[in-house]
Design a protein around this nucleic acid. Structure first.
Length: 106
DNA sequence: AATTTGACCATAA
DNA sequence: GTTATGGCCAAAT
């Protein structure tokens, strides 16, 4: 099992209506402080892990990460998050203090 | 086999 | 608010 697999598992565990930061996912995946790896991993994910709600993982600023691969679909995914009850601020950011996933409650 | 690359975060200036 | 820097891994070319 590679470190990436742990990351995928964690991301899959993010409950609906919640988001997690890269750093948080990294920590839960057993990669303390390696937020970067999460980003690296998620880039190559959906080719082999199409079920991962990658869009529920946001950066420390509470924003959705961009990628040329997504080619603008980030806008659509934002709507999906809103459908889950996640509210975006005027700056297109998420209130992490409110929607940040608390692994201890699930 | 070696090099490139790719969704980050925290700190400092 | 911005820009720069250091730290880390696996897959793709």
């Amino acid at each position: 099992m590679s470190s990436y697999d742990a990351i995928y598992a964690v991301v899959r565990r993010i409950p609906k209506g919640r988001v997690a930061t890269y750093g948080q996912v990294a920590e839960l995946a057993g990669l303390p402080g390696q937020a970067r790896l999460v980003g690296y991993a998620l880039y190559r994910v959906d080719m082999q892990h199409p079920d991962i709600p990658w869009q529920r993982v946001v950066n420390a600023k509470g924003k959705i990460s961009h990628s040329v691969f997504r080619h603008g679909t980030d806008y659509a995914q934002r709507s999906l998050l809103e459908a889950e009850g996640i509210h975006f601020t005027a700056s297109a950011r998420i209130d992490l203090s409110v929607y940040r996933w608390n692994p201890a409650e699930t």
